[in-house]
Every structure is written in C-alpha cells, then in structure tokens.
Simulated assay, not measured.
Amino acid sequence: MNIIKTISIGVLSIDDLNKIQVAVSESRCNVNYNFWFDVKYTSQTHIECEFIEKIVNERTYENLDGVEEKIEYVDYYRMKFIFRANSFFSLCLIDPPRNTKYGLQMIRSLVTADAKLKSIEFDLAKIIWCANNGENIKIHAASISNLKMNNDILAKIKLVSNFNISDFVGGEYKYNSGCIDSLSGFVRGIPFEISKLGRIKTQVDSIEIVLSLLEQFNVHNE
C-alpha cells in the first residue's frame, strides 16, 4: 500500500487547476536546470506530478598510491503529489520522503503567492460513527491514547482483531477521554489505514475513491 499525506491549500477551482498545469508544463525537465516537474497524469479534476531535483555530490578518496582523487555521484530528491480541484484535500503527497519541507516549498511555487499550506488532521471518532451508522466500513485495528483509567493513570492501547471492532470501540470508549490515534480496516471493500495526523495508507489506484469517501464522511478537522 502507498502512504498519502493530505494537505490543504484552500479549495482549488478548475481554473486554478488549469493554471497549475500550465506552470507545471513550463517547469518540465531542462538541461540548464537541476530541478523540474514531471507530469504523470491529468484529468479535469486532478493533476498527478512529481518534483525531481538532481543533486551532484563530490567525494574525495585516497587511492592505493596515496594520491587523492575526486569522484562525482548523483542523487535525486523526488516528491510525488496530486493537486485536486473542488476538494478540501487539495494537495496530497504520495509516499513522501522523510524531509518534505523543501519539496513543499517548490510545489507551493506552482500556486498563487498567498496560498497557505495547512496540514490536515482527522477526527477518527467520526469514522467509528460512520461505521456504526450504515456505512460500509469495517475496523480491524485501533490505537487509542489518553484513556482515563482513574484520576492518576492514563493508558494507551492497541486493539487488533480478525473481526469488525467498530461497535466495541464506539461502545467502550464513547464517553472516555481517550483519543483515537489510528484505525485500519476496510472502507467499501478497500483496505486502508488512517492516522489522526492526516496520513492515509491505501492502494495507489484507490486514492481518489478513499479521499472522496473521507470528504463525504466529513472526518477532517478544519
């Protein structure tokens, strides 16, 4: 499965998306630059791209004769992402690298100057509510923290089962002060994992379906 990090830059219109596509096309690979954008897929409502930067490094080593020599080697910084129109999840990073700050700065250059990148958090209790109110969601694992055992003890637990535990989680912890940190299971037959910090793990070809369902369920905190 792939990891998707959801980010908001405000709701993008179709016109905004078209302008971004022009900016991406103008920034494609050029031998005079060490960085570029590569378009992977476009549709009326989203653009899938990759930011790539070529990084040339130099290393000095000593050969068997005691003479220092220099060699150059090339690394590539890559970040795949999707711009989505008419959606609160307007920017999604796909399998992001550990350091995303630089890549996000470059991606931000494709949108309007006043655009603000904002990380999205999920209220996972809403997914439990949806699972217990007719939606086709099955939860097989849950991580819950800050469970109040008594006035002095807070607990963190991990629940795992081969069966759907949404009823158990919703019933046992509905009135507790605990916070649901992550859930995993199936949404309408699609396997997924989701964390409150805006990360989703699912199959790359199911990204659009899962994001649309999460937006329909209104599980994000604005």
Rank of each mutant, 00 (worst) to 15 (best):
N162S: 11
D16L: 05
G10R: 11
I128Y: 05
I209S: 13
H140L: 14
E62C: 11
M1C: 03
I209F: 12
L12E: 08
L214V: 10
Q105Y: 12
S166W: 08
I82R: 15
K40T: 00
F35M: 10
I94D: 07
V219K: 08
V39C: 09
I82Q: 07
I55W: 01
I71F: 04
Y77S: 07
I55V: 13
Y102W: 01
I139Y: 09
V39D: 01
D15N: 13
I200T: 07
K40M: 00
G178I: 14
D75N: 15
V160D: 05
T202G: 03
W36A: 02
A115V: 06
I153D: 04
V39F: 00
D123E: 11
L93R: 14
Y77W: 02
G134I: 02
W129R: 13
A113K: 15
Y175D: 14
G185F: 06
E53W: 04
F217T: 00
N99S: 12
L154T: 09
I153H: 06
A155M: 11
E215A: 06
I157N: 09
D123R: 08
L124Q: 06
G171A: 07
K201I: 14
R199Q: 06
M106T: 08
Y175M: 05
G185I: 04
I7P: 07
L213G: 07
D65I: 05
K80V: 01
I47H: 02
I94L: 15
W36M: 10
I107K: 06
I180T: 05
E222R: 09
S166T: 06
N132Y: 10
F83I: 09
